[in-house]
Amino acid sequence: MLEAKLEEAGTLKKLLDAIKELVTDANFECNEEGLNLQAMDNSHVALVSVHLEAAGFKRYRCDRPMPLGVNLGNLTKVLKCSKDDDECTIKAGDDKDVLNLVYEAKNSDRIAEYDVKLMDIDSDTLGIPDTDYDAEVTLPSAEFSRIVRDLSALGESVRIEVSKEGVRFASDGESSSGSVLLKKDGEPGRVKTEKERKAERAIARGEEPEKDEEDEEEDEEDGEKKEKKEKEKKIKKEKDADEDVEMDEEEKDAEEFKPDSDDENAEPSDDEEESGKKRKKKTNGSSKPAKKAKTKAKGKGKGKAKDEEDKPVFDFSMNSHVSLTFSLKYLVNFSKSSSLSNTVELRMSNEVPLLVDYDFGQGYVRYYLAPKIGDD
């Protein structure tokens, strides 16, 4: 049995709106890790991969792995019956042939329930190989949508070129042509390997990253070096402790011969008391306004820093020069996922499908698009 409750139905609506034109029928593969969908378009040029993490649901239960074959058009119609902020519960029994959706309104007692018929879809899950890309581009999803939409009015294809100069999107049509160059300050960095990405994702989940034989050998060497450093540190600590004991004995001897005029308990004179009271009164009188002004300035700066941090930025990394041509029709379809995330990531290598990655809080949607070769 499957029972998954989403905080907002709007997330699922946006997800299906983005992929329904590429894929008609597909299987949602359900397991203890979450919901997965993988399908190719009819022309076998593009592949879409969707993952909704179990942790992203308000409540999630999946007793055993099971496929849910659905027509995405019919499922979209049923999802349109919900409001974006409704809580959405997806249910499917082991022996039932329907997918049950329940919408609960947050501001009222309204509960709506719908059923979508399940289908038997024969589809094999494709193994997507781990690829070390030569170039990686991160940019605001709204900027990517605008670029591909504008260039699609000029031609059918776009050439994406990543060089030290920046990232260029260029389209040549029969009667017009155009290009957009995105530049950044400083030299581009190095693209991370898939192994490094997996390690980062594991650490983010609070897990230990997987290690191979080379990593284990490096860990052994690091362990030996660490042990040697700890021994040296221990010896140094013991030496410092001995020196501190000698210093304490010398200070103790010096205190025994301290003059009476340096007594800390000596009472202050009348002049000292009077001047001290004046300083205290003056300080107390001016402390409140200064504190208030400081707090106001601090809050203003904090809000500005937060806005700058949330704002999506453009960045790119490259290991080598990359130049590939893709169909704009598909890229325009991919850009519909911009409603899910403020940022999009493009990963490229020569003669390898382009990866367009929209990562949002509850999971991701990834598109793979084969490049055009020659006049094809």
Rank of each mutant, 00 (worst) to 15 (best):
L6I: 02
A9Y: 03
T11I: 10
L12H: 04
K20S: 06
A26Q: 01
C30M: 03
C30P: 01
C30S: 03
C30T: 06
Q38G: 03
N42L: 12
S43E: 14
L47N: 02
A55D: 14
G56F: 05
Y60I: 03
Y60A: 01
R61V: 10
G69E: 01
N71L: 04
G73V: 07
N74A: 13
L75D: 00
L75M: 09
T76G: 02
L79G: 03
C81V: 00
C81S: 14
T89W: 00
K91I: 12
G93I: 01
S108M: 05
S108C: 06
R110H: 07
R110Q: 12
R110F: 05
I111V: 13
A112E: 08
M119S: 09
I121C: 07
D122S: 15
S123V: 11
S123I: 10
I128K: 05
D130Q: 09
D134Q: 10
V137G: 04
A142L: 09
E156A: 10
S157Y: 13
I160H: 00
K164D: 15
G166K: 04
E174Y: 06
S177F: 06
S177Q: 14
G178D: 02
L181Q: 09
K183R: 15
G189R: 09
T193P: 00
E196A: 14
A204D: 10
E210F: 05
K211T: 08
E214C: 00
E217S: 07
E220Y: 09
G223N: 10
E224V: 06
K228R: 14
K228W: 03
K229A: 11
K233T: 05
K237C: 03
D240G: 02
A241H: 11
E243M: 13
D244M: 14
A254Q: 10
A254C: 02
F257K: 13
K258V: 09
D262A: 11
E264A: 13
N265F: 10
S275H: 12
K277C: 00
R279H: 11
K280G: 00
P289M: 05
P289R: 11
K292Q: 12
K292V: 12
T295P: 00
T295H: 08
A297K: 15
A305H: 11
E308Y: 08
E308G: 00
P312C: 01
N319L: 06
S320L: 08
H321T: 15
S327R: 11
Y330K: 01
L331W: 05
N333H: 09
N333T: 11
S339D: 13
L340G: 02
N342Q: 13
N342R: 08
T343R: 08
T343N: 08
N350H: 10
V352M: 06
L355S: 14
V356S: 11
Y358T: 02
D359A: 14
D359I: 14
F360K: 07
G361M: 12
G361F: 10
Q362T: 15
V365T: 07
A370Q: 10
P371F: 04
P371G: 11
P371Y: 01
K372M: 12
I373N: 01
I373Y: 07
